[in-house]
Computed example of a mutant assay.
Amino acid sequence: MPHVSRRQYIKSVGVASSVVALAGCSGGDGGGGEGDGSSGDGNSGGSQDGTSTSGAGGNTYKMDVATAYKIGTTKEYPVMQQAFKKNVEEASDGQIEVKLHPNGVLGAGTQLAEKVQSGTVQAAQFSFSNFSPYASAVDLVNLPYFAGNNQQFVNLVTSDTWETNVHEKVRSNGFEPLFYLVIDPRALGVGKGAGQVMTPSDMKGYKHRIPGSQILEEAWKMAGANPTPIAWGETPSAIEEGVADSLHVSIEAFVTFGFTDLVSHITRINMVEDAQVYAMNKQWYDDLPSNLQSSVDEAADKTFRQNLKQVPKSRENSMAKLEEAGVKVHDPSDSQLQEWKDTVGYQRSEWDSWKKELAGDMETFKQLEKATTQQSEFEVPN
């Protein structure tokens, strides 16, 4: 079957696909919020090899889906794993049985991306930065204020330009991208011993935790900080011990990853988006009957829409947890936010070489830039 882009598919089902009640992954561990009706552990049979078995209603396909998050995380971090399971099984009338492997039991991040690429698992959720080795344009999202808020990010990743410059390339490397997880823009948090940060000048001398990203290293140098590469798993202890003074993650991530008792102030500077992706092994997707490929597409579209509706609820729950812990959350004024954009924003000439390198040429970069501002059919709630 010739491949129909997910954007084209979503357009075809968008009107007919109703946005149902929010599906939170909360039933499994007693984590409140709106459940999606899935079983508590998310495991409804299934096999590690994703093979099909013959039954009265035809073949049944066993589909393993791996994530790094425990069941119930959606309450504060909209992972949507139970929703995705339910949507796939319902869309396929039970012909695809989904077995969730949550909580990192099969790995996390790059490990999961590699397992999807090799077909060890049929699908997984991981940072979309794992696509960057195959489509360098992915890393443009790390440019400060290029796609720094939820709507800009959604506009970009659902555009035809993204389809051409990213999805076509990752498909040729063994992935079938299903949908993106919108979390929220990353916010700047400082440890207990540090004062609040409202403008770049407040960052002077701060040891700011960064992942292994040259773009982010350059961005925080421009802001006046001392970029300090620290592995994610070591970041809580680094903040607690003063090895790092600050970090940059979404509001929801501060709660989900245990920083509520480690930071004193958080400032929402809306510089870079926190988002992830669900992807499937392309060969497994291609081997499905066409009607079940459509079922997977329908389920992906539905879960994406549910994710967008869930984000404000996860944010609200996270904010409540932060307030309870005594963390002060600040929103910069318009003039303070403009200082950030003027100091580190992607419009600065320092970023020109990155634009050319990652997009391939400035014309392609301009097309991707335009895509961030063109309203997609998906309107992200505030």
Results as ranks from 00 to 15, higher is better:
Ala91His: 02
Ala16Cys: 02
Gly45Leu: 06
Ser18Ile: 13
Ser17Asp: 07
Tyr61Asn: 08
Glu34Ala: 08
Val4Asp: 02
Val20Arg: 08
Asp93Phe: 07
Ala23Cys: 15
Ala68Lys: 02
Ser5Cys: 11
Ser39Val: 04
Ala68Tyr: 07
Met63Phe: 15
Val20Leu: 13
Met80Trp: 01
Asp93His: 12
Ala68Glu: 06
Gln48Leu: 15
Gly42Trp: 04
Gly31Glu: 06
Gly33Ala: 02
Val79Gln: 05
Gly46Met: 15
Gly46Cys: 14
Val13Pro: 10
Lys62Asp: 14
Ile10Tyr: 02
Ser12Lys: 10
Val15Ile: 03
Ala66His: 09
Ala23Gly: 14
Val4Gln: 14
Gly28Ile: 09
Gly50Tyr: 09
Ala21Tyr: 14
Cys25Ile: 13
Ser52Pro: 06
Leu22His: 08
Ser92Gly: 11
Val19Ile: 13
Gly27Ser: 08
Tyr69Lys: 11
Gly94His: 05
Gly31Trp: 05
Ser12Gly: 03
Ser54Trp: 15
Ala16Phe: 11
Gly40Tyr: 00
Gly94Met: 01
Asn59Glu: 14
Arg6Gly: 05
Gln82Asp: 10
Glu76Tyr: 05
Gln81Arg: 13
Arg7Pro: 06
Val79His: 05
Lys11Gln: 11
Ala56Lys: 04
Ser12Asn: 06
Ala16Gln: 03
Ser26Ala: 08
Val13Asn: 05
Gly31Met: 10
Glu89Pro: 03
Tyr61Gly: 15
Val65Ile: 08
Thr51Pro: 04
Gly46Ile: 13
Arg6Gln: 11
Thr67Asp: 13
Tyr9Trp: 13
Tyr61Val: 14
Gly46Glu: 10
Asp64Tyr: 09
His3Thr: 15
Ser92Trp: 08
Gly94Asn: 00
Gly40Cys: 00
Ser92Asp: 02
Glu34Asp: 05
Lys85Cys: 07
Gly58Pro: 12
Gly46His: 13
Ser92Val: 11
Gly32Asp: 01
Ala68Ile: 11
Thr53Lys: 10
Ser38Arg: 00
Gly72Met: 07
Ser47Phe: 08
Thr53Asn: 10
Lys86Gln: 02
Thr74Arg: 01
Ile71Val: 10
Gln48Ile: 15
Gln8Asn: 14
Asp64Phe: 07
Lys75Arg: 12
Ser39Phe: 00
Ser47Gly: 07
Asp49Ile: 15
Lys62Leu: 10
Gly42Arg: 05
Ser17Asn: 03
Ala56Asp: 08
Asp64Lys: 09
Ser47Cys: 11
Val15Asp: 07
Tyr9Thr: 03
Gln8Ser: 13
Gly37Tyr: 01
Gly57Met: 00
Ser12Tyr: 09
Glu76Phe: 05
Phe84His: 01
Ser47His: 03
Ile71Arg: 01
Ser17Lys: 00
Asn87Trp: 02
Gly72Asp: 02
Thr74Gln: 00
Ile71His: 01
Gly27Glu: 03
Ala91Tyr: 06
Tyr61Ser: 11
Asp93Met: 12
Gly35Gln: 03
Tyr61Arg: 05
Gly55Leu: 07
Gln8Asp: 14
Asp29Asn: 07
Ser39Glu: 01
Asp41Val: 00
Ser52Lys: 13
Lys75Cys: 11
Lys86Gly: 03
Gly30Lys: 04
Gly94Ile: 05
Gly32Tyr: 06
Gly27Pro: 06
Gly24Ile: 14
Gly58Asn: 07
Ala21Glu: 13
Tyr61Thr: 13
Gly32Gln: 04
His3Gln: 15
Leu22Phe: 08
Gly35Asp: 03
